[in-house]
Each structure stands twice: as structure tokens, then as C-alpha cells.
Design a protein around this nucleic acid. Structure first.
Lengths: 140, 140
DNA sequence: ATGGTTGCAAACAATTTGCACCAAA
DNA sequence: TTTGGTGCAAATTGTTTGCAACCAT
């Protein structure tokens, strides 16, 4: 096991998830990529190592345990291992994704909670921005 | 045609979309519901009036024309006719959705644009909040 | 006639499940 | 040892497409 895998195994154990080779490989893969990836890409990358079903099962668990974050886009899900909480800027034309580190001011969710009748706490937020990237807006 | 349908037809025409009975019914339905609905619910509600394929085709057109807004959640898409731009607060446990009218401060997207290397404009943003609603947190 | 629109059924893509075998704690 | 995890293939779900019929120009 290389360092990345050892770290992954350790992380899994602290979350109470059994550190099988498959899950270790999956988490290591998620951590090795900076851009969010879809399930298909992960399955392809780990072909021969993990079955498709195992990938999906693993992703579900990881999401529940908050080890990965799931971003819903264009009909399929993308997954990423969150280092820091961040958001995305997505090109409507080519689908390119840029990470952005702006953060939602706390005041926004406080104001929101104050107004809501049915909720008394907020756990998380998802914020995505859409535009056309420079490359696409150049040749169009 | 009732008032809601007449208004829908007029709106379609201003967008350059042919106001067929099917599209009128679809838009009227979208407008009649306050909560975002998924395609399945719309198909069910309009069963016998519109075919499934027509619903999906209509939703795509409407989305392109910005007549409806699409929200990606939990593996499927939800659609709503936007009165005002707003966001959602979603219960992780029961899936209940509450509309919230807080808005992203302009400063956030300005800051974002200033930092981005690959984008020079932002067209839209999607912001969703997740928590546990009072009902669910009570009996758990 | 013409060109967009519809319904139907079949195709497709993404994800989930049943089950027999296998492995980490 | 035993409880949970895995691979395989089939099933399901959500959505899209091909095509012939249709309707309003």
C-alpha cells in the first residue's frame, strides 16, 4: 500500500467503514483527482480492480459518511473528495468545471433560518455557477 | 381555455414557441404548482392529455427558453416555473422542499469573476440548502 | 404541400439489486 | 467464525429517439 492508500484506509476506519482493498482504491482514486468525476470515469479508471456495482455502492457510503461530496449536473452525478468546502463554475457549452473558493457569507444562511418556518437548522449548501468559458465564447 | 391557459399560451407566443394544446397544458400545470415537480409527477398528472415524450420534449424547450427552471436533486430533475428567482431548502430525511427568497449577494459573483481565469461572465447560479426539517428532527 | 408537433414503442444511459461466493475483523 | 462485502448479470429507473401520422399554415 502506498501512502495515499494508507491515508485512505486510516480515514475509512475513523469513519467506521471497513477498509477493504476496493474501498481503499476507490477513495484513493477520488483523492487523486482534483476535478469532480462521474461514476463512469471512476469505473473506467478502476476497471479490473472494482466492479461497477462496487463503485456505486462505495460512492453511496462515502457520501453518507461525508467522505465525498456529490454534485448533481446535467443528468448525472459527479463526485469529489472535499479538501476544503468549495463550489463550481460550469461552462454551459463545453461542460468544463472550475473550482471556486468563494464562500457563501454566513449572513445568508442565518437570514434564511430566521425566515424558515419548517427548518431549524441547515447542514450544508450547494452552490454552482453557470456561464460560458472564454474558450467557448471565443469560437462561437 | 381558462385564464391560466390563456396566460400560458400568450407567454409561449412571446417566446416564439408554438402554443399547442399540449404545451399550454404543460405550462399551465407547471404554473399551478408551487413546489418544484419531477417529470414523473407531471406525466402522471397529465396522463391521457400528454404523452411522456411530449412532456420531456416540452420541458427541454421550456428550459432553453427560460420559461422553467430545472433543479437537479437526488438523481432526478425537478422543474418549476420561476416567478421570482429563488432557492430551496431541502430536508435530507423526507425530501420536503421549501422555497426561500434569500438571494446571493452580488458581491459573491463579482468576487468570483475577478478570481476566475477561465470565465469572463456568469449567467446563472443554483443554490440549494440542505438540513433536517422540524417534523423529521422531532420523530427521530 | 410543408414543416413543426405528437403518440407510440423501442432504445438508451445511469444506477440498483439478487444472489452465491469471499474476506476483514 | 461470522457479518458484512464483492462480482456478476439481470432488473429498474429516468430520459431520449425513430418514425408514421397529424395539424396548422
Amino acid at each position: 500500500m502506498n501512502k495515499r492508500e494508507e491515508a485512505a484506509a486510516a480515514h475509512l476506519r475513523t469513519k467506521g467503514i471497513r477498509a477493504t482493498p476496493q474501498r481503499i482504491a476507490l477513495l484513493a482514486r477520488l483523492r487523486s483527482q482534483r476535478a469532480p468525476q462521474n461514476a463512469e470515469a471512476i469505473v473506467r479508471a478502476l476497471r479490473g480492480v472494482l466492479d461497477q456495482a462496487t463503485v456505486y455502492r462505495g460512492l453511496q457510503e462515502f457520501e453518507k459518511a461525508r467522505i465525498v461530496r456529490r454534485v448533481q449536473l446535467r443528468g448525472s452525478s459527479l463526485y469529489e473528495a472535499p479538501g476544503t468546502h468549495h463550489h463550481h463554475l460550469i461552462c454551459r457549452s463545453c461542460g468544463a468545471i472550475e473550482d471556486v473558493d468563494v464562500c457563501l457569507p454566513n449572513a445568508v444562511s442565518e437570514k434564511l433560518l430566521a425566515k424558515s418556518k419548517r427548518f431549524s437548522s441547515i447542514e450544508d449548501d450547494a452552490l454552482e455557477f453557470f456561464g460560458i468559458c472564454k474558450v467557448c465564447s471565443a469560437h462561437s
